[in-house]
Design a protein around this nucleic acid. Structure first.
Length: 494
RNA sequence: GCGUGGGUAGUCUAGCGGUAGGACGUUGGCCUUCCAAGCCUACGACGCGGGUUCAACUCCCGCCCCACGCACCA
């Protein structure tokens, strides 16, 4: 059980994460990673990449610009749907979205109005503040995207990308050609995205600059399901909370075939199972702390036909919180870019001509890092970060038992040799217990101690973080055994 | 953005209109044969800006930042 302050305090103290620019009082919505946070994050990204690119031989990482001109973001719908006109009540100060006020009054859709047009309509319809009946102030544009003026004249309107996905869609045709016209084709980006959140909150949970890891899978809906090894996931139930239950704490355990029976496409269910396996098996998230939460039609974006959030239960954030999503975006994005750019996005594959559909596996990297810090945090006599070994910033700590009799020299030599294969860290400061405690706090799974017996060729001790138990290994077997322990191929003490 | 509460070393915290104290951590040393021991040593803070005052960390104003609630989160 970790409170928000527990996680943040450890993060700051041990070099994981802290508010950016705090020298100048901070900068809301922006966080910096320290040395351990960066290592842990990179290990998460590596594991993510290995897992999801591993779903197919035709899935790859690409990297695209973080600044996009206006046109593609108009095509994607972000310029119109990500920008709202806000109207503030002059009496009670409450703010409303202009289009929603008009819709409430006329039951018609109102999009693309200028601020002046909206003001005129509000006067015409005599709309008052729904909260206090006060007079409404002038409309002002609010854009969730950060606008930029590119070039010397500043006339080329551009934005920081609000999601990495568009970079993939813009490169679909190039990659389809370069990857020799095969479907399904997967293109992933791990990179930064930017949203001008109205009120950033809860540390790394809602930030204005954040990292996404997104895999866009392009496929033919007619054949995608048949090409997937559905049997491989059929026996494991998937944890689901339906839209109506999202404020309840639990989840149903539903077998894949029953999800298909409830109208989800087999290929969609297959990917839910793959995502769940990533969380439960690779990230070692406790089963009851993981679920998919369905979004109903009102909640999901207009282009998503099917949308389940990936949620992880975090004490520090007050329960199940979104860390990613599985989105069936249909052919919305490619169609939009075709219409705007006039560049054909349809392709011929297996004898049929189509604009591929897209399944997006989307993950907030910072949110995932935070969730793992939260879940790993355990506090007894001392704080222990029970990270999965793959994610720990340091894999092996190396210590001399005492600082005399040549033990430091021997331990340092061992450290130098272990460094070639592991993220190893040497420490001879303070007592041995203190050094174990320091390693526990950053989640180092194993520590090796050189003692007097080591000088006599009787090996070294290896301590396991979670059990605090020790075994003695000869120096010749040490490296291979550590490799097996870290990979989970061997159980400690066995 | 609105409301409530808050901001003192790296972390946690005491305090006062007049020299800012502690604990833990960190540094260096002594000691030490396995889990934050002990002794010595050193480093280290009043979020920012303005005002009142002989004097402001303390009172007043503005801003920034944080948590929580509301709103927002295509």
């Amino acid at each position: 059980m970790a409170s928000y302050d527990d996680v943040m305090s450890l993060s700051v103290r041990r070099g994981f994460l802290w508010p950016a620019v705090d020298l100048y009082g901070g900068f809301a919505g922006f966080y910096d990673y320290g040395h351990n946070g960066f290592l842990m994050r990179r290990r998460w990204e590596d594991l993510w990449t290995e897992t999801f690119l591993g779903l197919s031989d035709n899935y790859y990482l690409i990297d695209t610009t973080t600044i996009l001109p206006e046109a593609p973001l108009k095509a994607s719908g972000h310029v119109d749907h990500f920008s709202d006109l806000l109207v503030t009540c002059t009496r009670c100060g409450e703010s409303y979205r202009g289009d929603q006020l008009l819709e409430g009054a006329t039951h018609e859709e109102h999009e693309g109005l200028t601020p002046a047009e909206l003001d005129a309509r509000i006067r015409e319809l005599k709309i008052r503040c729904p909260n206090c009946k006060g007079e409404l102030g002038p409309a002002r544009p609010f854009n969730m995207m950060f606008p930029l003026d590119v070039g010397p004249t500043g006339k080329d309107r551009a934005y920081l990308r609000p999601e990495t996905a568009q970079g993939v869609y813009l490169n679909f045709r190039r990659e389809f050609e370069a990857l020799r016209r095969k479907l399904p084709m997967g293109l992933a980006i791990v990179g930064r995205a930017y949203r001008n959140e109205i009120s950033p909150r809860q540390g790394a949970y809602r930030m204005r600059e954040f990292l996404q890891a997104e895999l866009q899978i392009f496929f033919d809906p007619a054949t995608f399901g048949a090409g997937l090894p559905f049997d491989a996931i059929a026996s494991a139930p998937v944890r689901i909370a339906w839209a109506a239950e999202k404020n309840q704490p639990g989840a149903h355990e539903i077998f894949p075939k029953d999800l298909v029976a409830s109208d989800l496409p087999p290929w969609y269910v297959y990917h839910l199972a793959a995502v769940q396996r990533f969380y439960l098996d690779r990230l070692r998230v406790p089963r009851d702390a993981f679920r998919f939460a369905e979004l109903d039609e009102k909640e999901r974006a207009f282009y998503n036909r099917i949308h389940f959030d990936i949620q992880v239960k975090q004490e520090s954030l007050g329960g199940f919180k979104e860390v990613g999503g599985v989105h069936y975006r249909t052919d919305h994005d490619l169609k939009g870019h075709e219409a705007m750019s006039h560049a054909k996005q349809s392709v011929t594959f297996d004898g049929s001509r189509l604009i591929p559909h897209v399944l997006e596996l989307s993950f907030g990297v910072d949110r995932n890092v935070w969730a793992l810090l939260d879940l790993s945090y355990s506090k007894g006599e001392r704080i222990v970060l029970r990270l999965p070994p793959r994610l720990a910033p340091v894999s092996v700590g190396v210590f001399p038992l005492v600082n005399k009799d040549g033990l430091p020299e021997k331990a340092e030599a061992l450290h130098v040799s272990l460094r070639k294969r592991f993220a190893a860290f040497y420490d001879d400061s303070g007592s041995i217990g203190r050094r174990y405690a320091r390693m526990d706090e950053i989640g180092t799974p194993f520590t090796v101690t050189v003692d007097h017996e080591s000088l006599e060729g009787k090996g070294v001790t290896v301590r396991e973080r979670d059990s605090q138990k020790q075994i003695r290994l000869t120096e010749s077997e040490l490296a291979d055994t550590l490799t097996q322990l870290l990979a989970g191929d061997k159980t400690f003490g066995a």
